Amino acid sequence: MDETETRVPLADGDLRWVFPEPAAPRRITGLLAETDALVRELAERTAPQAGPGARPGDGLAYHTVLGRPLAGVFGLVPVGDVVLRAGLFFGRRCAWDLRSGPPWTVEVSVEVIHPAEQCGGHLIEELANITCETPEAAPRNSCAECGASTPS
């Protein structure tokens, strides 16, 4: 995250930043909260492997760039020299692009993070890359890819 990007904890953000008109906001919020809990649990279990001075993952968070919300929620779990990255988002071209889904994308990957002056990092393995057409499918798939069994 650079100085123009701000992390907004899941509880402090606005679901409409990702899903402007959700038909079932409580259901979506519940699934995101379940995914958040899974990311936090995984981070706590892997914290001893994260190395000295490393902090465990902070769960899911919205992000803003230059004060504009990105259309997604993201989580990181550091493990040694790698990070598990999970995201549910609508891919925008830039911070000024205010479009939203569908479709939304759920991605889970393992990456190596390097300082920005080097290469910034690289993908080791993409564990999931799922396109979702409905607001309800996106967090359901996010939850499932992070290890929970969710009802259809």
Rank of each mutant, 00 (worst) to 15 (best):
M1E: 11
D2A: 14
E3S: 10
E3C: 04
T6D: 15
V8T: 10
V8F: 11
P9H: 12
P9W: 09
P9V: 04
G13P: 11
R16T: 15
V18A: 13
P20F: 09
E21L: 08
E21G: 03
A23L: 12
A23Q: 13
P25A: 09
L32M: 09
A33K: 08
A33Y: 02
E34I: 04
D36A: 03
A37S: 14
E41D: 15
E41P: 10
E41H: 14
A47K: 07
P48Q: 06
P48I: 06
Q49G: 02
Q49L: 14
A50L: 06
A50V: 03
P52C: 02
A54I: 00
R55K: 14
R55G: 11
G57N: 07
G59R: 02
L60V: 04
L60R: 09
A61I: 01
A61F: 08
A61C: 13
Y62F: 15
H63D: 00
L66G: 14
L66I: 11
G67N: 12
R68V: 12
P69K: 10
L70C: 09
V73Q: 04
F74S: 01
G75P: 02
L76N: 09
V77F: 01
V79F: 02
G80P: 02
G80R: 01
G80E: 02
D81H: 11
V83I: 07
R85F: 03
G87Q: 10
G87R: 12
L88M: 13
F89V: 00
F89N: 01
F90S: 08
F90D: 03
R93D: 15
R93E: 15
C94N: 15
D97P: 00
L98M: 13
L98C: 07
S100W: 05
W104R: 07
W104C: 09
T105W: 09
T105L: 10
V106P: 00
V106L: 01
V106S: 01
S109R: 15
S109F: 05
V110S: 02
E111R: 12
V112W: 04
V112C: 05
I113W: 14
A116F: 13
Q118M: 13
Q118Y: 13
G120Q: 08
G121T: 13
H122A: 06
I124V: 15
E126M: 11
L127W: 03
A128Q: 05
I130C: 00
E133M: 14
T134A: 12
A137Y: 01
A138Y: 06
P139Y: 00
S142E: 00
C143M: 00
A144T: 04
C146Q: 06
C146Y: 03
G147T: 03
T150M: 12
P151G: 11
P151I: 04
P151Y: 05
S152I: 02
S152T: 07
